[in-house]
């Protein structure tokens, strides 16, 4: 690489870091501005002298029942949806990657159409259906759509991973005297696990991010997830949108994402790129 290129890459790398992290830094900084300063107006990136709030906004937001409840809902709903979606997707992806059967193309096409589906077009009829079934404003009422909409991504990611597994090894193990269950458990599961895990992370991100279903299919804190709760968030002063309090809530809701990204960066990148590219 020439020096010119190298400088270009370094500048590019710095640009990426600024691009990605500046807004995050901003929302963190905003979360430390005091609510009084926000009311009178406190422009600027950093809290001004005397306009800082310390950890006040965080303790306020954590003390807020609605917010705590929303976090609980989001974690619960997202985890259950992820778990179920990945199980179902694993079955389907295994069939797609390993078996010959009629209807495979139908599955892939359906998945594709659903991945492109305009979610808003569904919420009206879904609301109508859910209230008939009595699952409006419940965890289940959100888990079902989350599963359906994460299945395409999970199926793609998993089938891409599964195609890379040397399935012959299973037979080889059986020849060596392992039962087929043992062969599956000792050979295939460890090879498939990273793929399943990756699909799970991507599914979780989707469920955690969802807003349209979250505001349309809930109406109380019984099931309202974080994004909807943030958009409806009410501080102590109902007439004044609590920007810095909201920012603290936003930061709290981002912590799980950052933790997951820090821990599993490689797997997520692999998962996002696996569908598009061979290998």
């Amino acid at each position: 690489m020439s020096t010119k290129n190298r400088i270009g890459v370094v500048i590019g790398a710095v640009l990426i870091l600024v691009w990605c992290l500046l807004p995050v830094a901003w929302i963190i900084s905003l979360s430390f501005k005091s609510q009084e300063a926000i009311t009178t107006g406190s422009p600027g990136f950093l809290p001004r002298d005397g306009g800082g709030a310390g950890w006040q906004n965080y303790s306020d937001v954590i003390a807020d029942d609605q917010f705590r409840r929303a976090i609980f809902n989001s974690i619960g709903i997202s985890l259950i949806a992820t778990l179920l979606s990945v199980i179902i997707a694993t079955l389907a992806a295994y069939a797609i990657a390993r078996l010959e059967f009629k209807g495979k193309k139908f599955v892939l096409t359906t998945a594709l159409i659903i991945a492109m589906f305009p979610v808003v077009a569904l919420v009206g009829p879904l609301f109508d259906m859910w209230r008939t079934f009595g699952i409006y404003d419940t965890w289940l009422g959100l888990i079902i759509p989350y599963m359906s909409f994460t299945l395409p991504l999970a199926i793609w990611t998993l089938s891409a991973f599964f195609r890379e597994i040397p399935w012959e090894m299973e037979q080889a193990a059986q020849v060596d005297g392992a039962t087929s269950w043992q062969a599956f458990r000792k050979v295939i599961v460890p090879l498939a696990a990273p793929g399943v895990f990756t699909a799970a992370i991507l599914t979780f991100f989707f469920a955690w991010n969802d807003f349209v279903f979250g505001i349309s299919l809930t109406s109380t804190e019984a099931a309202r997830p974080i994004p909807a709760a943030l958009s409806f968030f009410v501080g102590n002063d109902p007439f004044n949108r609590p920007a810095s309090l909201l920012a603290a809530g936003a930061v709290v809701s981002t912590i799980p994402i950052i933790v997951i990204v820090l821990l599993f960066q490689r797997k997520i990148v692999a998962g996002l790129t696996s569908g598009a590219v061979k290998g």
């Binding site: 992290l21 905003l30 991010n209 994004p227 809701s253 981002t254 997951i260 990204v261």
Partner: peptide, 17 residues
């Protein structure tokens, strides 16, 4: 890792930010 943060962040949070 940092490029994954905007990807993972809630869209509503990005909107507010």
């Amino acid at each position: 890792t940092s490029i994954l943060i905007p990807y993972g962040i809630i869209t509503v949070v990005s909107g507010f930010a």
